[in-house]
């Protein structure tokens, strides 16, 4: 049995492959920890209630809403944010596909969209259009860039090819 809080407690998170040390209260969400404590502002705070998907990150490769995840429960897990996708200044194929297919207007929902798509393709590398629509259902885009988003995801899937 492990007890934390209610005051701040020191935890170690693995974010984008690097260890990060933070002092957080148990009520601190992973989203607030990423944005406020670690300055990783790619994940966005919008509804804060698990409705919109703008805060989507990967925890051990699984897409979750970081606004509904407590930071203290992420010790020992690998967290991936949008800041961790590009390698050596080269955009991830999904990011490149979003650019090429004009899959955004204001861009506020885009980090969550890209990470949701990342999780979708990891599980289903060659999705049909219907599977992309279903797989992206947890991310709202108030600009209505859905057509471009679907095309970007399908195009990135073709580029990377079926994974072995």
């Amino acid at each position: 049995m492990i007890e934390h809080g209610p005051h701040k407690t020191a935890i170690t998170l693995e974010v984008n492959g690097l260890p990060q040390f933070v002092d957080v209260e148990p009520r601190r969400t992973l989203l607030d920890t990423l944005r406020i404590d670690l300055g990783l502002t790619g994940a966005k705070l919008v509804c804060n209630m698990g409705n919109c998907g703008a805060c989507t990150v990967l925890v051990d490769g699984v897409a979750v809403y970081s606004c509904l995840t407590l930071a203290v429960e992420c010790e020992g897990k690998a967290i991936t944010t949008i800041e961790g996708l590009a390698q050596d200044g080269v955009l991830h194929p999904l990011q490149q596909a979003f650019v090429q297919h004009d899959a955004l207007q204001c861009g506020f929902c885009t980090p969550g969209q890209v990470l949701a798509a990342h999780a979708l393709l990891a599980r289903n590398p060659q999705p049909t259009e219907a599977e992309v629509v279903a797989g992206m259902a947890g991310n709202l885009c108030r600009c209505g860039a859905y057509r471009g988003i679907i095309e970007a995801v399908l195009s990135a899937a073709q580029q990377t090819g079926p994974q072995q």
Binding site: M1, I2, E3, H4, G5, P6, H7, E25, P26, R27, L70, V72, E73
Partner: peptide, 15 residues
């Protein structure tokens, strides 16, 4: 959110 104590349990019997 109000502050709270957070307790991790390892199995259902501890709950």
């Amino acid at each position: 959110m109000q502050p709270f104590i957070h307790i991790d349990v390892a199995n259902s019997e501890e709950v």
